[in-house]
């Protein structure tokens, strides 16, 4: 058996399959870890976007890691409410995103002068496309260093 604290630490380290530099805790999609007499370890997660295809992979990873660490029964629940927003992303998560080359989302409500290029820091950037390679990102380009980059959409 694992304790709640152990289970929490194990689950918190599960990476996001689409942006593997972030853990599900950094992203703010890990809502709760509890121990239940009947269900064993109960992990509650929430999708970033309604159709986020990563959510099933994340649930599988959570189960696998917990089983490997000795938890026999594991329940993963995906809840929709309250709806996730980018405000739930941790400061560590924002820093890791920037270092990875993805512009992190601004804080909501939106008060932002511009999107800073994660490579050179210039604010002289523009949006190339409102949609990107994953549901949570848009494509931008830096007009100073000319590098294209992804931006985590404020949501």
């Amino acid at each position: 058996m694992v304790t709640r604290e152990q289970a929490r630490a194990i689950v918190a380290g599960v990476p996001d399959p689409e942006i593997p530099v972030l853990t599900i805790e950094d992203l703010g999609i890990l809502r709760d870890v509890a121990i239940d007499d009947e269900d064993g370890v109960v992990v509650t997660i929430t999708p970033t976007y309604s159709g986020c295809p990563a959510i099933d992979a994340i649930a599988d990873d959570v189960r696998t890691r917990l089983h490997e660490q000795g938890a026999e029964r594991v329940q993963v629940r995906a809840v929709l409410t309250p709806a996730w927003t980018t405000d739930w992303m941790s400061e560590a998560g924002r820093r890791k995103l920037r270092e990875y080359g993805i512009a992190p989302p601004g804080r909501l409500p939106l008060l932002q002068l511009g999107v800073a290029c994660p490579r050179c820091g210039s604010l002289d950037t523009r949006e190339l496309s409102r949609f990107g390679a994953t549901a949570c990102q848009a494509q931008h380009v830096c007009q100073a260093c000319l590098e294209p980059f992804d931006r985590f959409k404020p949501h």
């Binding site: 976007y49 309604s50 159709g51 409102r130 949609f131 390679a133 549901a135």
Partner: peptide, 16 residues
């Protein structure tokens, strides 16, 4: 970009 945009919209709708 529009392939990605419309299929992203489709993905949101499927998730709903």
């Amino acid at each position: 970009e529009e392939d990605l945009a419309l299929t992203n919209v489709a993905l949101d709708l499927l998730g709903q």
